[in-house]
Design a protein around this nucleic acid. Structure first.
Length: 296
RNA sequence: GGCGACGUACCCAAGUUGGUAAGGGGCGGCUCUGCAAAAGCCUUAUUCAUCAGUUCGAGUCUGAUCGUUGCCU
């Protein structure tokens, strides 16, 4: 079993420190399960592990991707599987907050072929001209099963359903019945804290990012990375780049704190229902590290 | 002390000629299968500073009280 276990939890909960200790204990390398820390150079604002940390313990799937490239759960799975196959003797620990990536890795993904972007572009055009409502009706005709519970406002999922249908001639719901390539369930430890403490940590961490020179990072990146690159979607980057006055910067900082809190809440909802895990309460547990070691 | 304005949910805020409390944010909950730091959904005032009055009916009218605020002496 090349991946020993996974450490998950909301952003800012304290995954990195703990997982570093665990990696040393098991002589393991870390696989980052985070859809934002992947981009090269987007370090401070996405809370990538520090250079010192990455020197101590080898990290994968962190700080490696061209910021102009898009990434997806599927590519994440493929890359991790390649890594595992190439290094059967090594120990790994998966660490991160992107639940979908971890779930896809364990359970596998439907083998839907890569769809060329033109299909989606066409659908988006149609949505703009005829209205999303017409796509909603189309999708319901084509694949009622996949449309279950999808609200008429949810463009992302409606378009995905139509895109798969148009490009492959098969329904998304059919594809989804055949998941492939999962590595199987591994033990998952879910790090938790009280909501109040978590939010305080998040607020504090954003302040620390600013103190660590996030603003400088943003402006440096802007010199080399095209502004339409996907990496700029990471929370706060674009907003910070466009903030000119100190007042605007302060406003963005508050907004980033809020949005990060909102994000953490969504992560918690996801983890609560989507991934079976062992809860690790960092506030009541005397020694979380020992606890996890004891469970393995 | 005099004159005036205002007082609606945790915050901002609409409320038309009195007819039975918009909207936004936040908080909380949820959905989730290749953009997931995404996308979307639900919830949040039996009550409008307080008390009394007019009225079939008052956040909307009247009076008093309390509070905030502006101008004047």
């Amino acid at each position: 079993m090349p991946i020993l276990f996974a450490i998950v939890g909301a952003t800012g909960i304290g995954k990195s420190r703990l997982s570093l200790d665990l990696a040393r204990h098991y002589n393991a390398e870390i696989i980052g399960v985070d859809s934002r820390q992947i981009y090269r150079g987007f370090a401070i604002g996405t809370a990538q592990p520090s250079l010192a940390d990455m020197e101590q313990v080898k990290h994968h799937m962190v700080d490696f991707l061209d910021p102009a490239k898009t990434f997806s759960a599927g590519e994440f799975c493929r890359s991790v599987r390649e890594l595992l196959e190439a290094n059967p003797g090594k120990n790994y620990i998966a660490v991160g907050g992107t639940g979908l990536y971890l779930q896809s890795l364990m359970l596998g993904l439907p083998k839907i072929p890569q769809i060329e972007p033109g299909v989606r572009a066409g659908l988006e055009e149609k949505s703009a001209s005829d209205g999303l409502d017409s796509l909603f009706k189309m999708a319901q005709d084509v694949d009622p099963e996949a449309m279950e519970g999808v609200e008429p406002e949810n463009a992302q999922r409606i378009i995905r359903i139509l895109e798969v249908w148009q490009a492959t001639g098969r329904k998304l719901s059919d594809w989804q019945k055949e998941r492939e390539g999962g590595i199987g369930q591994i033990p998952v430890f879910w790090l938790q804290r009280s909501r109040e403490n978590l939010y305080n940590r998040i607020n504090g961490r954003v302040d620390k990012m600013m103190a660590d020179g996030w603003l400088g990072e943003v402006h440096n990146l802007a010199k080399n990375v095209p502004l339409d690159a996907p990496a700029w979607q990471s929370l706060g980057y674009r907003e910070l780049l466009h903030a000119c006055t100190p007042e605007q910067v302060a406003h963005v900082v508050e907004e980033v704190k809020r949005k990060t809190r909102n994000y953490a809440k969504r992560q918690i909802t996801w983890l609560r229902w989507q991934i079976p895990s062992v809860a690790v309460d960092l506030e009541t547990l005397a020694n979380p590290y020992e606890f996890i070691v004891g469970q393995i």
